[in-house]
């Protein structure tokens, strides 16, 4: 049995035929489309390493069945740069040491993009920490991650004239 799927991934329309209904969005990205920036940590929705934006909302790709995402728009870490220029959230993670080993970083950055777009956290570190609690960092770079998210949010608000608070 095969399952035809249409997805827009990082701005590119893709028509995919699945041969197995068990494929998750995470495995589709990593194993079939070679988009390995999205990481498989726990594969059970506990670590956040697989965070992507699905129709603009951050989700755990490991707990989404690919077949159920038919018609959706997906943004992964490979799609956030503007050519060779880092996205302000990526630049802020480097500037604030928001990583050590880097394994969780793609998920952290995708989650930060979702958090900033949701607009609920404002300039409050406590709300940023709570809003990022679905992304574990075993190196313990949380202090830098919080600073990076706050800094990137301020820069993005300045860019588009929007008040992020």
């Amino acid at each position: 049995m095969s399952f035809p799927l249409s997805l827009t991934i990082n701005g590119v329309a893709r028509n995919i035929t699945l041969d197995d209904p068990r494929v998750t969005l995470l495995d589709l990205l990593r194993e079939r489309l070679e988009l390995t920036g999205t990481k498989k940590g726990c594969d059970r929705g506990q670590c956040g390493a697989c965070t992507v934006l699905l129709d603009g909302r951050r989700i755990n790709a490991c707990l989404a069945l690919a077949a159920s995402c038919d018609g959706a728009t997906v943004l992964t870490i490979e799609g956030v740069t503007d050519g060779d220029a880092l996205h302000p959230v990526q630049a802020a993670f480097i500037a604030h040491d928001g990583l050590q080993c880097g394994f969780c970083t793609p998920g952290q950055i995708m989650s930060a993009l979702g958090l900033i777009d949701e607009g609920q956290a404002g300039d409050d570190p406590e709300r940023v920490r709570e809003g990022m609690s679905g992304n574990l960092c075993r190196c313990g770079a949380y202090a830098g991650i919080t600073e990076a998210v706050l800094d990137a949010q301020r820069r993005l608000a300045g860019q588009d004239g929007r008040d992020a608070s």
């Binding site: 929705g45 989700i59 958090l115």
Partner: peptide, 9 residues
């Protein structure tokens, strides 16, 4: 409850 990612799904 849960995380922002899970609440979105």
């Amino acid at each position: 409850g849960a995380s922002a990612q899970l609440r979105n799904a």
